[in-house]
Design a protein around this nucleic acid. Structure first.
Length: 477
RNA sequence: GCUCCCUUCGUCUAGUGGUCAGGACAUCGCCCUCUCACGGCGAGAACACGAGUUCGAAUCUCGUAGGGAGCGCCA
């Protein structure tokens, strides 16, 4: 059997980490089995769908390296891949259902429905369509239609049945049809709602495996009923447990920014995100940072966890660090982005990227170093100023002399200062580091020296000298 | 309220009747080292609770508690 999976977002917002995970898993599964991954845009809710979201969604997916073999921009055998363009397909099935008397028109208004729901809820019952319009006679229906009322159509859920299926993640599932109310399969305006078109499209597109959020679990028996009655093929369904925030509640803006778009803007690397996601609620038998193709090889449906997983930003950062370190220098340079690139002199690019790479998590970290290296002065914080004062005037006198003598050759400078001052180790390096960079921590000093150049080094050392002498003057009072 | 799903270190998880309950991230300590990071070594840290089945239960059964989802002319 050819594996065909799909991701079917509705373009009502930016793509989220949870969505991205469902898409990723679907793609990984297809890739693992040399199948097709299909992107289908479920834009049937015209009022909420926006074209801009369709575009950003595709962009985000591509950025994550989630690529579809059929879908928008990649036409295939089973198009169109926009649900809004598939409405006539559904018409055919409405006809069959109507002929078989499996659906009926419902004239109930929103108010009536809401009232009934509230009543049932207050009585401790599950809110379910009561079946008012199911009992309508032909004559009554004809009368209402002639009055110009526009009905929605509901599926007559059969009584006393058990719908069974084996979820590829959660195992055997059983639902009683008596727990399921007659649901709408066709809106009053003639369009098909999710439950219907999603199932029909999966069948039409010959989807073999559906991986979707657990929130769809209860929809599954309905869709199976429909497909069974229409004699269409039923995909294997697997329901992914949801991702929750660190407090166990559903992931939301409260927990930070988790739209793929924002993560991208922040500087997350796609490889970091997909490696993290592939190990969230899924066991991967290796701990290495893997490219997409490798991730696909290691993806297994039976390694999917049944329990909800917490999103852990710290663990994500681990993958981000690995991902950054795995980048080669040209890739680091590109990743830094234009703003930072513009602050680094052309001939310094290679050295700059090499020097700070190990200290980077995001491009914004590089911005700090670019400022330190290429702006005129550095600002010392209290701790760094203390280090400078403690070293004393003489330290910086000697340092300046050494720079005069050896330029930016730091090993030589250090050797000289070791001689003249008789200090070494931390006492030698820290004051220099503080004076030159304004920070107690950072990359290799020898490379920093080359980034700064002798002139800037002298300038900063003389400023450090002044700082140290003020301290000495006041200290002798 | 009803239906369904879930419950192993702080987090992600391995584990399918007999394990010193394993790994990763995080934390802490040591080493490496001019600092941070990297790397190496090590430590602390978990079977939600209660019954039952069994010679033996994280593993099977039933309850309880807690968390989540669904119950739309949204998807």
């Amino acid at each position: 059997m050819t594996v065909r999976t799909r991701f079917s977002p509705s373009p009502t917002g930016m793509i989220h980490l949870g969505n991205a995970r469902a898409a990723l898993f679907s793609d990984l599964y297809a890739a693992k089995h040399d199948g097709h991954f299909i992107l289908r845009i479920e834009d049937t809710d015209v009022s909420r769908s926006e074209i801009q979201f369709v575009e950003s969604l595709q962009e985000d997916l591509h950025w994550l390296q989630i690529n579809w073999q059929e879908g928008p921009g990649v036409e295939g055998q089973h198009g169109p891949y926009w649900q809004s363009q598939r409405q006539e397909i559904y018409g055919k099935y409405y006809k069959i259902l109507e002929e078989k008397k499996l659906i009926y028109p419902c004239f109930c208004t929103d108010q009536e429905l809401n009232l009934a729901r509230k009543l049932q809820l207050s009585r401790g019952q599950a809110p379910r369509y009561s079946g008012t319009c199911r009992k309508l006679t032909e004559a009554e229906i004809a009368k209402r239609l002639s009055e110009g009322q526009k009905p929605a159509w509901r599926f007559s859920v059969p009584a006393h049945q058990t719908i069974e299926f084996t979820d590829t993640v959660k195992g055997l599932q059983q639902f009683k049809s008596d727990d399921i109310g007659d649901f709408i399969v066709r809106r009053a305006d003639g369009t098909a709602p999710f439950i219907f078109c999603n199932a029909i499209d999966d069948a039409m597109m010959e989807i073999s495996h559906v991986l979707r959020g657990e929130d769809h679990l209860a929809n599954t028996p309905r869709q199976i009923m429909l497909l069974t009655i229409l004699n269409l093929s039923i995909p294997k369904y697997g329901h992914l447990s949801l991702i929750v925030g660190d407090d166990g509640s559903p992931l939301s803006k409260r927990h930070g920014s988790f739209s793929v778009h924002e993560m991208r803007a922040k500087g997350f690397l796609p490889i970091a995100i997909i490696n993290y996601l592939a190990r969230l609620g899924h066991t991967c038998d290796t701990q290495e940072l893997l490219p997409f193709a490798e991730l696909a090889k290691h993806f297994q449906l039976d390694k999917l966890s049944r329990s909800p997983a917490r999103f852990d930003p710290v663990q994500l950062m681990y993958w981000q660090k690995l991902a950054v370190q795995s980048l080669d220098i040209p890739a680091v340079w590109r990743w830094l982005g234009e703003t930072i690139q513009n602050t680094v002199p052309e001939n310094m690019r290679q050295l700059f990227a090499e020097t700070i790479k190990a200290n980077l998590e995001f491009p914004e970290d590089a911005a700090i170093w670019a400022k330190i290296f290429f702006h005129e002065n550095v600002q010392l914080d209290e701790m760094e100023a203390d280090i400078v004062r403690e070293a004393g005037e003489q330290f910086f006198v000697e340092a300046e002399l050494a720079v005069d003598k050896f330029g930016m050759d730091l090993p030589a400078i250090l050797a000289e200062m070791k001689q003249t001052l008789g200090v070494q180790g931390k006492k030698l390096f820290m004051p220099l580091r503080a004076a030159l960079t304004g920070k107690a921590h950072g990359p290799e000093l020898a490379q920093i020296a080359h980034l700064l150049g002798a002139k800037k080094m002298k300038h900063r050392l003389s400023r450090a000298f002044k700082l140290a002498s003020i301290q000495q003057a006041s200290g002798t009072e």
